[in-house]
């Protein structure tokens, strides 16, 4: 049963509306939006940002903010790749994912210790660890681009199916890594909705003191979040390496702000407690469709940043205005945050 009044207060419908408008614009401009291969291309481009955004959303819902996930992903991926190359590994790709997840988990545990156990502020901690992990990767490991082991290369070439564009005869492959995204979505959906741990994440984001009194193990939940998000970042790093068939250590860095923006755009409350996977995926989809359709819309390359900036400003402006607007006229406004 859909409660219309409740729906109107959420931001998902607005983001969805924005996506529909954008899609129509692309379709009108290029006649290429609703083609099988374009949709597959977009899905493919979404995989890495979407995986990151799931973790970012969990952290924001719990009342924190994490900017270290690109650094964790890069270091975990790079370390795994180097180790496997050194031993001339040629076995199953699952080991690579497991190793990357393990490294990610270990780095997440550092965040977890500082944030969960020592109760330090999340933004400051993750800025610090982000710097730390990047430095370790580039300094101690002297990271530079390197190839990936053969099994990962083979994994990178796997495809689920090939979509064909009937107009132009173009084909695009759906990479098998999308299964990892779908798996992660399902896992996190079940976790957030059907486990006490997941409800605990929402509970501490809503009111940490109340969560403690109610009997949630607040420290435990936080430690879990940062470890889990770290492990997921590690897997994401491996996904990117296998999709690119190349281990590039710095190529993920700098994504944090865009991912967080997508999550917030998707209706996750910056101060914690509220946020849905649906909204997050819509937010990511909007950002990805936008950045991957500028040529299709016909925006000249020199104008892409102006256009992207304008869309972010207008998009968030409309959402913020919608959320903040009450019927009454204020004599003077301004909130500060």
């Amino acid at each position: 049963m859909i409660n219309m009044r409740r729906m109107a207060k959420r931001s998902e419908p607005y983001v969805f509306g924005a996506i529909v408008l954008l899609c129509l614009l692309i379709q009108v401009q290029s006649k290429q939006f609703f083609t099988g291969n374009n949709l597959v291309d977009l899905a493919r481009s979404m995989i890495v940002p979407a995986l990151f955004s799931i973790g970012a959303m969990m952290v924001i819902v719990s009342g924190g903010i994490d900017v270290s996930f690109p650094a964790i992903a890069s270091l975990a991926m790079y370390a795994t790749d180097r180790i496997l190359l050194n031993v001339n590994y040629s076995g199953n790709v699952m080991l690579a994912y497991a190793m990357a997840a393990g490294f990610g988990l270990a780095m997440g545990a550092v965040n977890a210790l500082l944030i969960g156990v020592l109760r330090l502020p999340t933004l400051v901690v993750t800025l610090g660890t982000s710097s730390l992990f990047t430095g370790i990767m580039q300094g101690a490991l002297a990271a530079s681009e390197s190839p990936v082991p053969p099994s990962i290369l083979a994994h990178g070439k796997e495809k689920l199916f090939t979509a064909t564009n009937t107009q132009l005869g173009l084909t695009s492959d759906m990479p098998s890594q999308i299964l990892i995204l779908l798996g992660a979505l399902l896992l996190v959906f079940l976790l957030l909705r059907y486990t006490m741990l997941g409800r605990g994440i929402y509970a501490i984001g809503g009111d940490e003191a109340a969560a403690r009194r109610a009997g949630f193990n607040v420290v435990g939940v936080k430690v879990f979040i940062y470890c889990f998000v770290g492990a997921m970042a590690g897997v994401t790093g491996m996904v990117r390496a296998s999709m690119m068939m190349n281990a590039h250590p710095t190529n993920l860095l700098g994504m944090e702000m865009t991912v967080i923006a997508a999550v917030v755009l998707g209706g996750t409350r910056v101060t914690g407690g509220l946020g849905t996977l649906t909204g997050t995926m819509l937010g990511v989809a909007l950002m990805i469709i936008l950045s991957n359709s500028l040529i299709l819309i016909g925006i000249p390359t020199y104008w892409t940043r102006v256009f992207t900036g304008a869309v972010i400003i207008i998009g968030t402006g409309v959402t913020a205005w919608q959320a903040g607007g009450s019927g009454r006229r204020l004599a003077s406004s301004g909130t500060g945050l």
Binding site: N38, D41, N165, N251, N292, I295, L296
Partner: peptide
């Protein structure tokens, strides 16, 4: 067009170009 010195982006931009300009 810009590839942002990034393999993934070069790949994505190329796909877009081929779709838009057959």
């Amino acid at each position: 067009v810009e590839s942002e010195d990034n393999l993934e982006k070069a790949y994505e931009r190329a796909k877009e170009l081929f779709k838009k300009y057959p």
